[in-house]
Structures are given as C-alpha cells and as structure tokens.
Design a binder for these strands. Structure first.
Lengths: 238, 238
DNA sequence: CCAAAAGTGTTATCGCTACACCCATGT
DNA sequence: ACATGGGTGTAGCGATAACACTTTTGG
C-alpha cells in the first residue's frame, strides 16, 4: 500500500438514494429528471458527492433533506444498501457510489435541485428505465425492504405517527405485492410485544365507510420473533 | 453535480476483507500484521486499493487470491458487507473502504504480503483490538454471517466439497456460539429440498471413534424456507 | 337495508422442541 | 464392555392458515 494521494486517477465518491413511500395505495419512489448529459431527460435516483469532511451516511441524510425539502429528517429510516463500483457505471469518470434506502411515511412534494430539471414521486412499477445503473439500485432497495419487513418492525417507518392496523397491513401488501389475511395479520402484529402500542380511545374512519379503526403507534421493538414470512416463494429452493 | 475531477481532495477507495473459516473447531479470521505506521505491529484485516479499471468486487477477489495464496478462488463465497466512510478512519488521508466477507472451507496457510509483516489465522474471540476500524468491520461480518445462516444455505461454504451433517452442524454451533439438538438439526437440513445431497454409499469416520457418518454435498438451493432460527434472543423485543 | 371495513372465534395442520432410544466403530 | 459420535422415533406444544362470523359506520 503506497499512500501517494495522487498516484491514481481520482475516484469520485457519491451517494445515491432510493427513497420509498406509499402514496395512493402504491409503492412510489423519489426521482429527479436529469437536466444534462449523460442521460439528459431520463429519471434518476437523487444523490450527490460525499463532501471532504463527511461520511457517506451524513452525505445521504443531507441529500435527503435537500431533495425532499423536509425540515427534520433526523427520525427517518435511512439505511446503507450497498456500494456500486463498476468502472464504467458513469461514462464521465470513475464514480463509486454508496447507495442508501430511505423510508418515508407521508410524501411531501419534492423540489427540483440544482442539476435536476424536475423532481417527483413515481410509482415503483412504472419507474424504469432509469439513468446509469439506478434500475439495479432501485431493485436492490425494493428487495432489501421486502426482506426486512419479514423480520423487523420496519413497516411502521412507512406509516404516520398514528396509524391503523389496516394501514400497516397495506404496507406489507404493497411492498410484497401479495394479499394477506386480515385476522391473522392482526393477531401476529398484536402478539409481537413492542411492535405497536394502542392509542387509548382513538379511532379513525379509513375508507369513508366501515367501522372506525383503532389507532396505534410504533412500539419500541425493532425485531420480529418469530418473523412474518411472505406467503410466496414456496418450493423454490434454487 | 460538477464533474471537475480535481475539485476535491481525492478519495482513496479500498477493499477490506473479513475472511472467515473454521479451524480447530473454532471460528478463525485471516489477519495481517502491519509493518508500518499507523498501527505498526497491530493486526489488521487484509485489503488494498481498488485499481482504476476494476470494481470493488474484482479487487476483493484479487486480494483474496493474493492473501490466501489459493490458486482458484472463483468458487468461494464472497459477499459485500458495507462501506465504511468515516472521514478520520485513516489518519493519513481520506479512505473509503468497501468491506467484504469471504467464507473458506479449508484453511491454507496464508503468505505475508508486501506491506504485511506476517499473515495468519487467528481465533475470532482473541482477534482484537485491530487497526483502524477493523474491529467494527469484523464484528459486522460475524453478525451478518450469523444472520445469513438462519435463512440461507451459506453454511456449506464453510465445508469442504464432501462433509458430514455433524460438520455442518458444527458450523452453526461455532458461528452462533450455541449448541443445537442433533436429531432436530438433521431433520431440518434434510427436509429442506436442495440444501444438501447425499453422496451414495460414502461414509467417513470423524472423531476417530463412533459410527461412520454419511457424506453430503452442497445442493442447488440457496434459501431456507422456513428459516433455521437461532435459539437465543427470545423475549428481547427492544 | 346494504356495502364496506374493523374486529373476533375456531379448527386443522405444520413445524419445532425435547427427549428416549438404537447403531456402528475404536479402544 | 464402553465411550463416542451417527442416526431414528415420538409426544407435546405453539404458531400459522383458512376460514366463518359479528360489529360499526356511511349511503
């Protein structure tokens, strides 16, 4: 290991954000429209350079605040996904990008950044094809979030501070793309200590009709034991 | 995003490897003794620079081959762990490191590299304290591998091409640090289609005594459904 | 009264745990 | 004979899946 700082062609280090939310009953992702080449006019994940004195995590949270326009992003779930480092992933120069996933409960309208023509929420299913390798990053983020719903209490990160069990179930169904049995889901969630806490006396009408649903808050638990497994992928060992 | 390559202090991008194996019935990790400051004389994870035309994965596999001296590392399990990017993790300059975990079945004696005074296998439990933030990386690797044993067929990556179920169980017990019930473990493994495949007629004596054990090969499956959960951590929701 | 959504109850089955027990081999 | 490790059997329990059913609201 030599440590001549200028021995190599410099690497740029960036962060890319896969910011997911649930809007209009569908999984949506925050995208920006590129204003310049390469990929001018294409949608891309928001992101930017890691600055000289900040970590990738710090950079990701800064970018998240800038792109969403949210005043306080301290409580939001932000998680490192993986790092993408193929030599030609950006045609201009060598860019190594640390990707993050963020989960948002509500969906404020984003604001366009400096080099982005537009910014907005797009349904996950109609999001591609994206610039660079961002399709891969987004797919990896979806897979990671889907897997984490199984064995963590992450689903509450998609919900507002107070939510109904129907809304929580909808998070699972939307991310997994499968329907769940409501009675069983309900029992499972309530049987996991610390997953949710009842808000005494509170109730809310959800679909305009039907019985008002009791409200819950996210509890202190982070892990699900035993896990809440997806019904799919049975008998597919390979 | 400006793309002036020299606008910032350059970032170095490196890979660090947490290479784990099971030797003498214990979890061991491949370490190198640093020959120079900082941390001269301390043990560290092997690693090195990502070269201009290679991805982090390619660099990791190259380093793995160099450090272990194995001729063919193509089949070995190598997995990206996460990226460590705290600004002061290396006192000399800004180094962003992509960490990988590798799992080895047998344990060839490593050879010392260019800047390493020595290289060797050390028991996981007596490995610290390491140079830089390598204690954190190693602990993260252990946690990740332990978690992946639960829901993937990864354990076979610690085993030679043909192995007994007792050896496979020993992988779980060593990584998790808990004892497992042999009959139940056996049933669970054999009930998962594609986890292991019997080698017809083959058997081997393991401890010098006892009934010869049937031999198995790793099967085509990669996932475990349902998972094989660790017995510990019950009733700890927080 | 009907539709819609929340919430409760019930039963069969599956998987896991905790054992007891038998088999084959070396000393 | 006995210690050691491999392998089989089984009873009980807990969690889940797949329902039927009741309750409360708006139209």
């Amino acid at each position: 290991m030599e440590y001549d700082k200028y021995a190599y062609e410099p690497f740029a280090v960036t962060v890319d954000l896969a910011v997911l939310t649930i809007r209009d009953g569908a999984l949506q992702v925050l995208l920006v429209e590129r204003g310049q080449d390469p990929y001018a006019g294409h949608w891309a994940l928001p992101g930017g350079f890691v600055e000289p004195r900040e970590s990738a995590e710090t950079a990701a949270r800064r970018e998240l605040a800038e792109e969403t326009g949210l005043a306080d992003v301290t409580g939001l779930h932000l998680e490192q996904l993986r790092t993408y480092s193929e030599p030609d992933r950006d045609p201009r120069m060598r860019v190594v990008s640390v990707a993050f996933t963020a989960l948002l409960p509500d969906a404020p309208e984003p604001r366009a950044g400096s080099d982005a023509a537009r910014a907005g929420w797009l349904p996950y299913d109609s999001a591609g094809p994206l610039a660079f390798d961002h399709d891969t990053i987004l797919a990896d983020a979806h897979e990671r979030v889907g897997a984490k719903l199984e064995y963590t209490c992450l689903a509450t990160a998609f919900c507002p501070p107070e939510f109904t069990l129907g809304e929580l179930q909808h998070v699972y169904e939307t991310v997994w793309g499968t329907a769940l049995d409501r009675p069983n889901f309900r029992r499972k969630v309530l049987a996991t200590p610390g997953f949710v806490e009842a808000v005494p006396g509170a109730a809310r009408l959800t679909g305009g009709r039907g019985k008002p649903a009791a409200l819950y808050r996210a509890g202190p638990a982070t892990a699900l034991h035993p896990p809440l497994l997806r019904p799919s992928r049975e008998g597919r060992p390979a």
